[in-house]
Design a protein around this nucleic acid. Structure first.
Length: 933
RNA sequence: GCCCGAGUGGCGGAAUUGGUAGACGCGCACGAUUCAGGGUCGUGUUCCCUUACGGGAGUGCUGGUUCGAUUCCAGUCUCGGGCACCA
């Protein structure tokens, strides 16, 4: 690529930065640390070094933090800007199983590639802080934190059903299972009970929820975390079991106010009471249903549309009114949530309603819906013009005639009065809710339940404890041994900190044992050990930690990566934390960020860190899609050859990965064919074939993927255009957070801009300062343009609006090119403004402008408000809100002067003559509007 | 179904507090330089009418508030993302 010699400039400055350790950033206690400067911590989500190498998505977020880091340094901050590797993980282990290569070898090779690729992009990382989660010096402290968790009772062993994937030979976390299949590879997953380590994240549910409030995070991420934690407030209610005075069925409900509407109960098929209460007559049907439910995969359960269930023959007793209600089992009730049992209120819950309809169970409304709701949801059988009372009567008698059941909170309670006397089995008076609003009824009935010992206020969470062990080799060993106590019982015992790190043994076989146990189970010599404290024989834990472990605290290790006395020095932690800016992909919105917050709060409680939350500001960079593709559809003949065209609106996807298409009208098979851009033309909302205007084509950018063949390799872009062009293009594409399609032609555009900037300052032939750079004072106009640029670029970097910052740099170059020359001080200021975005080129310009030192710590230019002012401004003149002309006025002109100037404008005058001016509006510096009638 | 986010030229996008819609870039057209191609430079480029001056329409759609709405309000459609029998 012609333009300017980026291939010569860029490696030269990368060498300079490395040789001069330009970006080495000392912290408190280190040589050369300047304690007078404020600290700024700019963090990237560190990558998993995959074998595929860097893709163009990585440099997007990395460039953003790099721009901010370089800018902050020039603003006089100490900037912590590190990079490292999240290097444990499944792909390296699978390669080991396939090819017998040690995962460490694969990992090191991949890290080499990633490091080389990142270094070519000119990021200002302090590489002396590089961390690798698989490094024993790092693992040591990951294990140390695990011991802290264990000490505080937050790590425990349990037999838990796990997602066992025979194909991968691994147990997967719930998050790694999608639709009953493994997220990686899409292999089937079955449930098997296995001994596991769990972390008690549920104990921190409330704090994880509340902590979100003050964070400067995208609302969507906060919403996802709240949703994941899934806090719901309600009550636990104990129902008696008819004929079994010693048993009760405990349910969780968020609507205790509707207790009088409970007309049946449902237990999950796995509920422990199922066998105890099922009557002989129903035993066969129940057993059959329970077995069928057990055989169903998660996927089957999700895919089934209709509600299924079976009657147990037993009845429960509603504690508020002593009413007998039938007890069913059904798989729409989840064993793992709440108590695994529900009271069903079909009149006010859509799921219960559907079930009641299917099995003919009674429906008893207990909340009177608002009149407006009744009118809106009256079904075809109900005349909507009926008065509210009649409509309500209809709802009361036949709720199924309405389009849905009333689940809202706005209604008034009814049919809920047991105040006439004591309720069966309960000595106290009954409760009366009639006429109350829903929230008041909730409070009253909960108080009644509590005072009668049959229920209590209760908060429930969707969040479950964190399954923290994996049956894999390539992970941190869990620093626990199983030994015997005085009584000869097998007990887990933590290793003393002095025994850390516990490193992985060398093994011959990376495949897990057939029973699903970790490959470590085969490393007999490693497993058999002694309790370092008592000397008794002990066996090591064979499970390893999940990949999330290392990424839960890496941002803390960056503070002090070489410390072998502690995970990090507390002074350093207090200076740098919390992270001021954290940028990464939205795919980590929940898990990584929730797990890291959890660990951080545990460390905070342990006095290890000084802040309650680790990441003050979070930004998700948007995904970069492949280039836009145009697709047309053809029929397929009997001979398999495509023929004819089918307009895109008739094509529907026959499966999920848009490989197969069919005609929505007759179901015939279609084939999607790519169409070059110059064979389509815009028509209406979409595109059509240029040759056949009645054939619409799809136009869409797709996610980059190997199979689609639309992956852009950053190395190729750097080869052709240089790192500065890649950085600039990725920032210029659009807002950082937005998903946007790649377009290689546009890289030309930013490359041309950099070439123009080069020629503005340097002589193309010699690469030295150009003769047009003058040792002269800038003119007032030149000052105005420069300072407007300073102002804009500064504001935009602060707001992470890099696309518009670059646009204003382009405007500056356009203006300066027209001047025909540029004063030295103006060229210098521009160079500094450019430097966070295109650091290599900027360093070169700076050097040629006569500076010996790197510009990395040169002070950032400041906009002078005085110089921003223009002498005259152009204002718009409207008549009745329509633009009729523009006039130049003095920048300080008052309203009268503006109005006077506006009336002079000939075209405006023409319109003013057509009627009487009723009103005159003048906004200083902006516009004038005459209202004429 | 529920919760977020977004709809602006041929394309990516801009308009930060309600004040000249389309900055900047891509693409395209014309011109200059050049043997030619490429590169570079210049001019133009929302659509329609007009030689021009100028006029009309226009920010997914339908209404509303306002002197004035891409921006605020109500409703609606489409697309993207997340969650999904969580009682």
């Amino acid at each position: 690529m012609a333009g300017y010699p980026h291939d010569e400039i860029e490696p030269r400055w990368q060498d300079y930065w490395r040789e001069h350790e330009t970006f080495r950033q000392p912290g408190p206690g280190d040589d050369g640390f300047d304690a007078d400067k404020p600290g700024f911590y700019a963090l990237d989500m560190f990558p998993y070094p995959s074998g595929a190498g860097l893709h163009v998505g990585h440099p997007e977020g990395y460039t953003a933090t790099d721009i901010v880091s370089r800018y902050k340094r020039m603003q006089g901050f100490n900037v912590l800007h590190p990079m490292g590797w999240d290097a444990f993980g499944l792909p390296a282990e699978q390669a080991a199983i396939r090819e017998g290569i040690h995962p460490r070898v694969t990992t090191e090779r991949n890290v080499e590639t990633f490091r080389r690729q990142l270094q070519r992009l000119g990021f200002s990382y302090d590489w002396s802080r590089e961390v690798d989660t698989t490094d024993p010096d790092y693992v040591k402290w990951t294990q140390w934190i695990f011991l802290k968790l264990y000490e505080k009772g937050l790590a425990y062993e349990a037999f838990a059903p796990v997602n066992w994937c025979p194909e991968l030979g691994a147990v997967l976390s719930n998050e790694e299972v999608v639709d009953g299949k493994s997220e990686i590879g899409g292999h089937p997953v079955v449930q098997v009970p296995m001994r596991q380590w769990m972390l008690r994240i549920t104990e921190y549910a409330d704090r994880l929820l509340e902590g979100l409030e003050d964070l400067d995070w995208p609302e969507s991420v906060k919403a996802m975390q709240r949703n994941w934690i899934g806090k719901s407030e309600g009550a636990e209610v104990d129902f008696g079991v008819f004929g079994y005075p010693e048993l009760h069925i405990r349910v969780f409900t968020t609507r205790p106010d509707t207790l009088f509407g409970a007309t049946y109960m449902v237990l999950a098929p796995e509920h422990p009471l199922v066998n105890d209460i099922t009557t002989d007559g129903q035993a066969g049907a129940v057993r059959e249903y329970v077995e069928a439910a057990a055989r169903k995969t998660e996927r089957d359960r999700m895919e089934q549309k209709a509600k299924t269930g079976v009657f147990t023959g037993a009845h429960a007793v509603n504690p508020v009114n002593g009413q007998k209600v039938p007890v069913w089992i059904a798989d729409y009730v989840l064993a793992g949530y709440g108590t695994g049992a529900i009271m069903a209120v079909p009149a006010h819950d859509a799921r219960d309603f559907e079930f009641a309809q299917t099995f003919g169970l009674p429906i008893r409304p207990v909340v009177r819906p608002p009149a407006e709701w009744l009118a809106q949801h009256a079904g075809p059988d109900v005349p909507t013009e009926t008065e509210a009372d009649l409509l309500f009567g209809e709802y009361n008698d036949a709720p199924h005639h309405f389009s849905e059941v009333y689940t809202g909170n706005e209604g008034l309670l009814m049919n809920s009065d047991a105040s006439g006397g004591p309720v069966a089995d309960i000595a106290d008076q009954g409760v009366r809710l009639d006429g109350l609003m829903v929230p008041a009824a909730k409070a009253d009935v909960t108080a009644w339940l509590e005072s009668n010992g049959v229920g209590r206020r209760r908060v429930n969470y969707k969040l479950r404890d964190w399954l923290f062990s994996r049956q894999r080799y390539w992970g941190e060993p869990i620093p626990i041994v199983h030994t015997t106590d005085e009584d000869g019982d097998v007990v887990p015992k933590p290793l003393p900190p002095s025994a850390l790190p516990l490193t992985l043994p060398e093994v011959d076989e990376y495949r897990p044992a057939d029973n699903g146990e970790s490959p470590l189970a085969n490393a007999t010599a490693w497993i058999e050990t002694t309790d370092p404290e008592t000397g008794r024989p002990a066996r090591r834990e064979t499970n390893t930690m999940p990949q999330w472990a290392g990424s839960c605290w890496y941002y803390l290790r960056f503070l002090d990566p070489d410390n072998d006395e502690a995970p990090f020095d507390p002074d350093k932690e207090r200076y740098w934390m919390p992270v001021d800016l954290y940028i990464g992909g939205a795919e980590h919105a929940v898990l990584h960020l929730l797990y890291a917050r959890f660990w951080h709060k545990v460390l905070f409680d342990a006095g290890v860190v000084s802040t309650d939350e680790p990441f003050q500001k979070l930004v998700n960079q948007g995904m970069i899609l492949g280039e836009v593709e145009y697709t047309a559809f053809r029929r397929v003949g009997d001979d398999g050859e495509p023929f004819g065209w089918v307009s895109a609106e008739h094509a529907t996807e026959a499966d999920e990965d848009d490989a197969d298409w069919q005609d929505a009208r007759d179901g015939s098979t279609l084939v999607a064919v790519p169409v070059p851009e110059d064979e389509v033309t815009k028509q209406g909302d979409g595109f059509v074939l240029a040759a056949h205007h009645d054939v619409r084509v799809n136009s869409r950018a797709h996610k980059m993927s190997k199979s689609r063949g639309n992956v852009v390799n950053p190395d190729d872009i750097v080869d052709a255009y240089g790192a500065d062009s890649l950085r600039l293009y990725e920032m210029f594409m659009g807002p950082l957070e937005q998903t946007k399609p790649w377009n290689t032609r546009s890289v030309d555009g930013v490359h041309r801009f950099l070439s123009r900037a080069y020629r503005l300052v340097l002589d193309e032939e010699t690469g030295r300062r150009a003769a047009t750079v003058l040792d002269a004072e800038p003119t007032r106009e030149q000052q105005r343009v420069l300072h407007a640029t300073i102002q804009k670029v500064t504001d935009d970097i602060e707001g992470l609006r890099f696309n518009t910052a670059i646009a204003s740099l382009m405007e500056f170059v356009n203006a300066a090119t027209k001047w025909g020359h540029i004063p030295q001080p103006t060229a210098e200021a521009f160079t500094l403004l450019l430097s966070p975005f295109a650091p290599h080129l900027a360093e070169e310009l700076w050097r040629q402008l006569g500076h010996e030192e790197s510009l990395a710590y040169a002070p950032w230019p400041e906009a002078d408000p005085e110089l921003l002012k223009a002498d005259t401004v152009e204002i718009a003149v409207q008549v009745n809100g329509k633009l009729r002309g523009t006039v130049q006025v003095d920048a300080e002109a008052d309203k009268d002067a503006m109005l006077a100037a506006a009336r002079e404008e000939p075209n405006v005058a023409r319109y003013l003559e057509e009627g009487t001016v009723r009103k005159e509006i003048a906004v200083p510096g902006r516009l004038v509007n005459f209202v004429v009638a």
